[in-house]
């Protein structure tokens, strides 16, 4: 099997230039999808018969929540690669996914609260999904905190990888237990995102904005990774050339 792609991605320098190329691509496609999804969803999709216009926040809320979860998995994979192969790029990716994932979790919580006020009449409800996202945010913040605490870079890379991987292994257990806990405490909560028979004029823009936000978030991860690469490799020639060219 040809593993050269693996090594290409493992080299910060090669990844830097590759991601520079991808970045414009991703940003323009992401903006296209996200823009059309949002315009369609916010402007033209039909009103919800129960919630009126307030439901339209799902075009941000649901994508953000899903991305926050899937980035945690991506971060866990980076942590695994870091622990097993000590690949140079892995901790950089881990940190990128952690930051953007935390942002997405925070975005999901904020939009959820804004949505909750008109529908539930309260900013906050200990609903299973919301609680899961809150815990996810805390876990992200813990990893970022570990990464920021240690001044020795090797140490901070490895320790944050350990806690990220432990978190990934525990995530299904935590999610399952929170769901179980929620049915125990609030058996009657009706779930908003699982509405039966969402018409296609409603879910198509949701799909568009989901794909769009996903691509944009990925592009932000890449941009953050580029910054980290430049900072970490600041003593190498290519970074000096690169930075001086820009000035």
């Amino acid at each position: 099997m040809n593993w050269s792609w693996f090594h290409t991605l493992g080299s910060p320098k090669k990844f830097y230039y590759l991601s520079l190329k991808w970045e414009r691509f991703l940003l323009s496609f992401g903006a296209l999808f996200l823009g059309s999804g949002l315009v369609w969803g916010l402007g033209f999709a039909p009103e919800d018969y129960l919630q009126g216009n307030s439901f339209r926040i799902i075009y941000i809320h649901v994508p953000a929540a899903v991305i926050a979860q899937s980035f945690y998995v991506a971060m866990g994979v980076a942590a695994f690669v870091q622990i097993v192969w000590r690949m140079k790029l892995a901790p950089i990716a881990l940190r990128g996914f952690a930051t953007v994932g935390a942002l997405m979790a925070a975005l999901a919580l904020i939009t959820g609260a804004i949505w909750g006020k008109p529908t539930w009449g309260t900013w906050w409800q200990w609903d299973a999904r919301i609680t899961s996202v809150l815990i996810l945010l805390i876990m992200y913040l813990g990893i970022i905190a570990i990464h920021n605490t240690y001044l020795e870079r090797q140490l901070s890379d490895r320790l944050s990888a350990v806690i990220a991987l432990v978190g990934l292994i525990n995530l299904p257990i935590i999610k399952y237990s929170v769901d179980w806990w929620n049915t125990l405490h609030q058996p009657a909560t009706f779930t908003l995102t699982e509405q039966p028979k969402m018409p296609s004029e409603m879910w198509l823009p949701l799909l568009l904005s989901f794909i769009g936000l996903y691509i944009v978030a990925l592009a932000i991860v890449f941009i953050r990774m580029q910054t980290h690469i430049l900072e970490r490799e600041k003593k190498t020639r290519w970074v000096r050339d690169e930075v001086n060219d820009g000035v």
Binding site: I135, G142, T149, I163, V166, I173, I174, S177
Partner: peptide, 25 residues
């Protein structure tokens, strides 16, 4: 993870608490 830190209790709480939840529940 926090073994080399002098003041570790707060950081430890932050990273361990989410892992505690299933047991608590």
């Amino acid at each position: 993870i926090t073994a080399s830190l002098r003041n570790s209790a707060v950081l430890m709480t932050l990273i361990v608490m989410p892992l505690y939840l299933p047991v608590l529940i």
